[in-house]
Design a binder for these strands. Sequence first.
DNA 1: GGTATCATGTAAATGGTTACATGATTAC
DNA 2: GTAATCATGTAACCATTTACATGATACC
Lengths: 180, 180
Amino acid sequence: MAQRNTLKYIILGLINERPVTGYELTKAFDSDIGEFWLAQHSQIYPLLKRMEHDQLITHQLEVTGEKLERKRYAITPDGQQELADWLNEPVTKLNANKDEFILKLYFIRDRQDGRLLPMLTTQLQLHQQKRNHLQDQMAQKFPDAAHIEAYGHFLILQHAISREQDYCQWLTNTISNLTA
Amino acid sequence: MAQRNTLKYIILGLINERPVTGYELTKAFDSDIGEFWLAQHSQIYPLLKRMEHDQLITHQLEVTGEKLERKRYAITPDGQQELADWLNEPVTKLNANKDEFILKLYFIRDRQDGRLLPMLTTQLQLHQQKRNHLQDQMAQKFPDAAHIEAYGHFLILQHAISREQDYCQWLTNTISNLTA
DNA sequence: GGTATCATGTAAATGGTTACATGATTAC
DNA sequence: GTAATCATGTAACCATTTACATGATACC
């Protein structure tokens, strides 16, 4: 055995909403879900093939214009079962969230270290950008707070914003503490 | 090319503080740094061998009791250079922080979905435990707020606590919003 | 004497990234 | 016509996990 194929479940979840192409799946990781998982098309296409072989999904060919083909994948009953099993299986442990900036910080022992301030300010910019982006997404996708369709999507967006807010706050506090 | 070997730099950073054994390195991922990166001994021992071959580290044999040997690794000038280069190289992008619970949540569309509440409460327990653990660590490792030696270590612990605090807050709010 | 921990390795399998590769369609 | 985007794939390489394997030492 080796690692658990989480990507498979993400793909099942996305296809379960509506039939999609590999290209559309790839795009999904640029936004939304990309906050919490990443995947390139080179990982997605072969996995789709394998999942079809395992009868979790099927595809139909579509043609755009003269020749350009695309495969639109739909979920099978087996696929739906596997998705449901995954959703019902409780998450019993938290995995480390990998953060290269934090790792570097760990090795800065001295409060006076000249690298500290530039590291912190660069990082603050990145997280502020991300926070702004997420807030734009929220405004765009959930303009009406009273009528929320995709509730889970709303929740994770809210969580991501809160997380970035907290990250910025910590960085800001640390910077002002250093420069005081 | 493929993935960037971040573990190498973590190991260099740890060995740079003081000479350590593979066993001690493995233990380091159970606490402290384990918040932000994980590694098993099966990954560490071969990498140590490779790093020694690349002349980033060297080792000396120590013997405990009659026979039990251990290799205590020290950093070389090349290793120190490589560590410094890594630390100086700015972190210009944020990577997705993988969170399986959040992914599952994404696929729950309906606010009335019966799976929602148990998922949230289980997750709250996990994050509360983690927060408590981190607060214990803080009290233990940094009892005197005025005299902080390992400043980076202090900062990342502070950050981890703040992050878990925020996670718990979001879960608590979401739960009370659901049950209202 | 037994159990937990110290201590170091290897093997097999899979996950994931980067690069290579090709061609069609759309919009300017 | 040309650049951006749509669309799908493969190859090579490395990271990471899980399992297999062995023996010593410390503590009760």
